[in-house]
Write a protein that binds this DNA or RNA. Structure first.
Lengths: 165, 165
DNA sequence: GCTAGGTACTTGACACAGCAACTATACCTG
DNA sequence: CAGGTATAGTTGCTGTGTCAAGTACCTAGC
């Protein structure tokens, strides 16, 4: 019945996507763990380091990392415990707590980043000709823009994203 | 110091990749959960349904799904409990246990698959022109082949083997 | 100024996956 | 065929993430 669907090109395409991503993630994860960081911790460090004041509200951090807010709380908890981050209260709104990179956190990031960049180049960007890479990134951007609900997402289901016909 | 590295194009590229994948996965996951399946359970069902005899050794299943063998054991445990799979002993080698799709499992797959294909088309393949999609898939294949040591164990045979670069 | 309702974050209970240790079986070599 | 090694799979322990409920706080309307 649906037997032919099992090998539908769409399935093949999404499978290829998934395999590529998980394979890549595994490579990168391996290198990061040598620096005592998980992928998500690295991303947190990176996002915070790029933010003004090296800090971000918990909610914004969660939105940028595709973690739930409780997930963000727990990651930040661990990283505070390990000295990589600290929490800063917001004087204007006492509900708000900023996650902020410490010196140690920044040092850890600096230590891991060069090897990380090398690996990205070795397994991803460097695998393709500049033109092919541009094509790939163009495609990804298009899909990302379609699939990524607005900016900071609550999953309200009724996304105001233009749907393709 | 490494401040400029924080916005390195390689970081941007991998970030785009990750965002796209997680966004896509979230969409698909949502639809599957409406059919009582997680992404990984769907993948298990799909891989088994495509395999000869609708079954696969635990080890091969694990290899095809980027699960550890213990992870595979646990997923199959749950799916057996829910009636989607059953375990078949191998008469020739009593260490081996096959995971096999039941009628109910196949029915569940058939029920979820059309909507799944629609979503892939809507958010992924249909977002791009055929040429752009081909470029994207070519790039993914190249990266996947580099990054994925030994892909399909057991029987998959779906992916066309690209030019070995 | 007090209440109603929304927002920011944390916490408790739970689901899930990985590693390492373990059991059971197969194979190989003398 | 005995003994050693390799392979298949499961299980205990633990880390990590989510959902739902809870706490604290802010803001608007009367």
């Amino acid at each position: 019945m649906t037997d032919r669907n099992l090998d539908d090109p769409r399935i093949t395409a999404i499978g290829l996507f998934a395999e590529t991503y998980t394979g890549l993630a595994a490579r990168l994860s391996e290198q990061l763990s040598a620096h005592g960081l998980s992928l998500i911790e690295f991303e947190v460090l990176l996002r915070l380091a790029r933010s003004p004041g090296r800090q971000l509200r918990m909610t914004d951090l969660a939105a940028q990392t595709s973690l739930s807010t409780s997930g963000a709380t727990r990651v930040v908890d661990r990283m505070v415990r390990d000295g990589l981050l600290c929490r800063q209260p917001c004087p204007a709104d006492r509900r708000i707590s900023y996650a902020m990179v410490t010196g140690a956190g920044r040092a850890r990031l600096d230590q891991a980043l060069p090897g990380h960049l090398d690996l990205i180049e070795r397994w991803f960007t460097g695998q393709l000709t500049p033109a092919a890479l541009e094509h790939l990134l163009d495609g990804l951007r298009t899909v990302r823009d379609a699939v990524h609900p607005c900016a900071t997402a609550g999953s309200d289901g009724s996304a105001a994203v233009p749907e393709p016909s």
